[in-house]
Every structure is written in C-alpha cells, then in structure tokens.
Write a protein that binds this DNA or RNA. Structure first.
Lengths: 144, 144
DNA sequence: CCGTGGTTTAGACACAGTCTAATTCGGCGC
DNA sequence: GCGCCGAATTAGACTGTGTCTAAACCACGG
C-alpha cells in the first residue's frame, strides 16, 4: 500500500479487514491510519477523544489489539512497559532514540536481512522486528 | 568472548567490568553468566535464591540493570511487560516463539544487516535488536 | 571504635495492560 | 415502531513489571 487512506475511506478500510465499523473504531482509525505516526496507547486515547470524547481506555486497548491482529497497524515494543503503534505495516526497521524516546522509521536499505531467512522446520515467521537503538548524543566530551 | 566463565572466574569477571563483587551479585552472575540462558527477572530471582536465599527482588532488579549497563548481559524486551535477560552479549538475532514465549538465539547468518549501517548524522548506534517472531504452528489445517 | 560510602532491603508506589460483569448498541424479524 | 440477540463498549478492579524511597547494613580506613 502506498497512500494513507482519507477519513472518508476509513469505513471501507475496516470493512475490507473484516472489522465492523463503529464510531469508536473509526475514531481510532482516524488517529492511526490516515498519516504516518508512532503513538503509545495513551497518546492514542488522548487524540481519539477529540473525535469520540467518551471513548474508554478499554476500548482503545481492544481496538489497538484488534487492528494489530488484522494487520492494519503494527505494534512495536520499544522498552518494557512502552509499546508504540505504527501506522505502517510494511516490513521496515525502526530507529529508537533512547534519550528522547522517539521512534522513527528507518530507510528500507537498513532492512537488508529479511527476505526469507530459512527457519528451523516447523516454525513459521510471523513478524520481524528490527530496532536500531540510537543515542542523539550531545555527550561525547572525553577522547578529545 | 567464546567460553562462559566458570563459577570461580566470576569474581574476576565482575572486577574486570568495574563492579565490586558482593555475594548477591555473584549469585546473580552465577545464574546468568555461566551458561547460555534467557531468563526473566522473576526466574532469575527464583534461581538466585538457591545460592542467596535472602536476596531481595530490588537487588535482583538493580543487579540486572547494572550488569546490563556494564555489558555483561543483554536485555531483550520480547513483549510489553516481558523482558528477558540473555547471557550472550555478542550481536545476534533472536527467535521468539509467540505461542510458548520461548526465546532462543538465531544463527549468525540471520543477522546479515548489521555491520555498520550508515546512520543519519548526529546519531550513534547503541544496540541493534532483531527479533524474529515465530509460531511453532501446529495449526495450519485449511489450504489442504 | 567510629564514620563514611556504597549495597541491600522491605514495602510502597507507578504504570501498562487485562479482565469481568454490566450496560449499551445496532441490526433484524415481526 | 417493538422486542430480541449477539456484538461492542464501558467502568473499575485487578495483575504483573519494574522503580523509588528511606532505613538498615556492611566493609573499610582512620
């Protein structure tokens, strides 16, 4: 997929994924599916409330898991207790800035290893997570 | 490093890493550094108590963070709220079986992409995490 | 023997995420 | 329009990881 859907296309996107559209789900979709973002569940909740003020935390979590299971978004666990949700589902690596906690997509050139690594028999590949942990590093004073 | 240290070598290993040896730390080291394992903090705590029955949870967490910071072990966050500690610190990819929750080391051939990907300027690479999420899959009934 | 700095400790705490049981919603046959 | 039913949503309790704090402890040097 190349383009992000517009708001009016969201209902179709959910349908196509086999997900009955509800107001709450459309609100989550609007936050996560219409532009490239990396958000925590909590940030999603906050943003979604702009469109659906009464949505509950549980519903956001349910919906995130649902979307993730259906391949509409991608879960990225960057630290223990810190999960981000990525609009982009196509295989790609991530930069994670350990100082700022910022996640960003890495250029495809950094995702070389994938293809189809031959696995031990009986295993089927679900997903490949590649996280390049970086430091934005203003600190490198010694060694001068 | 090729071999895992023996129990009697542990004190030297800690010294070399700049870590004052204590009974508690030696106990943790014994569990994590003398053989290839992938353990959660809780599993470490349980096993450590075989050698140091009165060690506290806080100390185990402190020590795990300390060892990790000093490059003696490696933290692998496999799921939100599930962190495993790996005896092996050399760069390598992991298999994570999402059904059983088992983590295992992948052959080096699967870690092709590394080397030194040229990063955006001002970023310095801390660590590369590659997790191949697999399913042990007894379920593949249709498509027959 | 005492002081000092690092280590350990129990328990409180913070937070992400899940679960449960009850309510609400939305479509459908009547 | 009315009532029904399964699905979706909800509040709030709950769980499990991991951190924090303040006190106790320990080893060592003076």
């Amino acid at each position: 997929m190349a383009r992000f859907p517009t708001v009016s296309e969201l209902e179709g996107v959910l349908k196509e994924a086999g997900i009955p559209a509800t107001l709450q789900r459309l609100a989550v979709a609007r936050v996560l599916l219409t532009a490239p973002v990396h958000l925590s569940a909590d940030e999603v909740l906050t943003r979604v409330r702009a469109f659906a003020p009464d949505i509950s935390r549980a519903t956001v979590y349910n919906t995130l898991n649902l979307f993730s299971r259906c391949g509409l978004i991608r879960e990225v666990v960057v630290e223990s207790g810190r999960t981000l949700y990525d609009s982009s589902t196509h295989p790609h690596a991530h930069f994670y800035d350990v100082d700022t906690g910022t996640l960003s997509d890495a250029p495809d050139s950094l995702f070389g290893m994938v293809g189809r690594p031959h696995l031990p028999p009986g295993l089927q590949l679900e997903q490949v997570d590649v996280i390049l942990r970086v430091r934005s590093a203003k600190a490198s004073p010694p060694e001068g």
